[in-house]
Amino acid sequence: MTDTLLEIDHLSVDYETGRGDLKALRDITFDVNKGEIVGIVGESGCGKSTLISSILRLTAPNTRFREGEIRFKGQDLLQASERHMRDLRGADISIVFQDPMQTHNPVLTIGQQMLDIQHRSKQSKADKLAHAAKMLGAVGIPDPEARLKQYPHEFSGGMRQRIAIAMALMSEPDLLIADEPTTALDATLEVQIIERLQELQREFHCAILFISHHLGVIAELCDRVVVMYAGAVVESGEVREIFHNSKHPYTRRLIECDPGHIKERARVLPTIPGEVPDLANLPGGCIFRDRCDQAMARCATEVPPLDQLKEGHHAACWLNHEEVTT
């Protein structure tokens, strides 16, 4: 058993809204081990972003942590002081955001910004600049010393995302959170960024929590996958297990709908009919029931627990209930 770096333990998060509490995350449980790449996949609005902002404790003011713990190296982050959180951010945990066109300060040069994020370091300015240039080189920016003097708008989107990755890895964090880092980029750049992330992960040995709704990227990059639906984990396990032996109808439908898996020409791309349930007013029973073609009577009344089906493979569906080993 490898060392666990991050443990999300029965985490439930609400947003207080005018319509009542929006149950954005319900009973989320999964681990990230040291040096492991874990993918989180799910459609828009399933709580992926709430989850990562909860880990960093950079949530909106109307957020309430109702239950559960987020343990990083054994310490509960939800109880940590603001001061302690600030020390962790950018040092032990860092993040790469979705849109590289927005993540840099438009009026400061890349060099100034890369200097600034090293504010904890006691090194001289020249050393910090050298470190910045080295990091830019590591993410494949040619002529890094000259590039440090340029402003963000002088870089392309793919370069900016690589710079964002360089900045996130600068302090050699233990955990890198990548929030859909390739969504805003085109397919060619996506491959580049993924390959670069893999290389860097091997070099820096950090764990990566990779959020995406692109199944192909998840399959390519990750060791384990967590499938989320409407604020809950529906299935989690090894990449191979999830893609070839998925045990939840939602995961199966999601894979079927991935354009990369479709072999025949079709007029209309397949979709999962129906809509995500209203999180402020959750129906009883299984959350996926309304959109599931295998729903049973039991699904309407009881919430299926996240059962362990085999070592490391969990799914929350009544269909598996005979297989449960524990």
Partner: peptide, 26 residues
């Protein structure tokens, strides 16, 4: 609410640093 300020916060910048170094020049 812009993303680069969120990025700064996620890198552990203090309020003074965000206001002085990142907002002021803007």
């Amino acid at each position: 609410n812009s993303e680069f300020i969120l990025a700064e916060r996620s890198m552990g910048a203090s309020m003074a640093r965000i206001l002085g170094v990142h907002m002021l020049p803007n």
